[in-house]
Amino acid sequence: MNGDSDLRARIDALGPWFHNLRLNGVQTAPDHFLGDYPSFKWQGFQHVVPADMTGMTVLDIGCNAGFYALEAARRGADRVVAIDSDPRYLAQARLAAEVAGARVQFHQMSVYDVADLAERFDFVIFMGVLYHLRHPLLALDLIHDHVAGDRMLFQSMQRGSDRVAAQQADYDFDDWSPFQGPDVPLFYFLEHSYAGDPTNWFVPNRAGIEAMLRSAGFRILEHPEREVYLCGV
Rank of each mutant, 00 (worst) to 15 (best):
N20Q: 11
V114G: 00
A82V: 12
G160H: 01
P30I: 06
N2F: 05
P50W: 07
L137T: 10
T54K: 14
A77H: 12
P30R: 04
L7A: 09
R206W: 11
N64H: 11
M212D: 02
G160V: 01
R159I: 13
D116F: 04
M152K: 01
H192L: 07
F189L: 11
R219N: 11
A115G: 06
Y171P: 05
V114Y: 05
W17N: 05
D122C: 10
D175I: 08
A118Y: 08
G160I: 01
D6F: 10
N2S: 12
Q158K: 14
N205M: 10
D12H: 14
Y188E: 14
A51D: 13
G232V: 08
G55L: 07
H135S: 06
P87L: 06
D170G: 08
Y68I: 02
L130I: 15
R10L: 10
G62C: 07
M152P: 00
R214G: 04
L70V: 10
W176N: 10
L230I: 07
R134P: 09
F67R: 01
P30W: 13
D86W: 05
R8T: 08
F33W: 14
A9T: 12
G3F: 06
R103Q: 15
E71K: 11
M157S: 12
F202D: 01
Y171N: 06
L137A: 13
E98F: 12
S39V: 05
E98T: 03
S156Q: 11
S156M: 08
N64V: 12
L23G: 00
M53H: 00
G66A: 11
D172Q: 14
V58A: 00
V233I: 13
T199L: 13
D60N: 00
F179H: 13
P16F: 11
F173D: 08
E119P: 08
M56A: 08
Q108S: 11
G208F: 07
F121A: 01
A51F: 09
L140G: 01
P198N: 12
A165H: 02
M56W: 11
D113H: 07
D84K: 04
P38M: 04
G217E: 04
L230K: 03
P50T: 04
Q158T: 15
